Simulated assay, not measured.
Amino acid sequence: MQVSTMDAIEILGTISFAISGSFAAMQRRLDPFGVLIIAFVTSIGGGTVRDLLLGDTPVAWMRDVNYCLLILLTSIATIFFKTHIKKFKVTLFLFDSLGLGLFTMLGIQKGIVFGLSPGICIALGTITGCFGGIIRDTLLNTIPVIFRKEVYATVCIMGGILYFSLLYFNLKEDLAKVAVIGFIFTVRVVVVRYKVTLPRFGY
């Protein structure tokens, strides 16, 4: 069976966010059931919000049980290999950054399928990329990354603008997708590595 580029992106995104959620849960010393729940909401949270906004129901993971099986298997594998991975925080960050790029592209493509304007497609990409992490952090009693000074949602918006710009200049669609995913991942890693932050407002 031939796997399309978007199918591959969806599979990789689901795996990345499932690993991200699992490591976040293990950092907080949750039991295996808690790890599975956090992995699940991290993986499907953004897509669920997106599909509800679009009225595309039942949402994707309810129509295809393979999503749930993939998250389950990924969570079990992550728990099994946790003893071989010392730097939980680094692993969580890298997979979260990869998932951010992959799911942002998924959200943009879903908006395009529905015939929406580029601006709305970028908003849907940002929602798809960010909301799983928001739900994860909220359940773990942590201030979500998107509400802190780190560059998170901003890089999704930048990636979306880059995607439509590349299409405007006639770059092949599949190459544009890969370029944007790589851009979001790289920028996220660089800004965290060099502590580039957005200004804070308040008293």
Rank of each mutant, 00 (worst) to 15 (best):
V151T: 06
F23R: 11
Y152M: 05
I79N: 10
I181G: 03
I146Q: 04
G202F: 03
Y203I: 10
R63Y: 10
K177M: 14
S22P: 13
Y168T: 03
G133V: 05
Q2F: 13
K149M: 06
Y194G: 07
G125T: 04
L72D: 12
K149Q: 13
L98A: 15
V189F: 11
G159Y: 00
P144K: 03
G101E: 03
V90A: 14
S165A: 13
I127E: 00
F17D: 11
Y194I: 03
V90M: 11
L54F: 06
F183E: 01
D31E: 14
D7P: 10
L139M: 15
T74E: 11
E10P: 05
L70W: 04
V145P: 00
D51L: 03
F93W: 07
R28E: 15
Q27E: 14
I120M: 13
Q109E: 14
L94M: 13
K110Y: 04
G132V: 05
G111E: 01
I134F: 02
G46I: 04
F164G: 03
L102D: 07
F81H: 10
V151C: 11
G45S: 08
I122Q: 00
V191C: 11
T5S: 14
G13T: 09
T78A: 15
R63S: 14
G182C: 13
K86H: 15
P58W: 06
D51G: 05
T186N: 04
H84M: 08
C130D: 01
I161A: 03
M105G: 05
F201H: 06
S16M: 09
D174Q: 13
P58H: 06
L73T: 15
D96F: 14
I134C: 02
K87L: 07
F33Y: 12
S22Q: 11
A179H: 06
I108A: 01
I122R: 00
F33A: 11
I15W: 04
A24S: 15
V187N: 00
Y67E: 12
F185Q: 01
F147I: 08
L100M: 14
T91Y: 11
V65Q: 11
P199V: 01
R136W: 09
Y168C: 01
L171D: 00
T104R: 04
Y163H: 10
L70H: 07
L171M: 11
K89G: 13
G21H: 06
T5A: 15
R188L: 08
I44P: 04
I37L: 14
I9R: 06
T138Q: 01
R188T: 10
I143Y: 02
I19L: 12
L171E: 01
L52R: 05
S75A: 15
T5P: 03
S97M: 08
A18D: 11
C121A: 09
T91W: 10
G129K: 00
F95Y: 12
K195M: 05
L92E: 14
V180A: 07
V3I: 15
Q27R: 15
A39Y: 05
F103A: 09
A176I: 03
G47C: 05
G129L: 02
I37S: 10
F95V: 09
F183W: 04
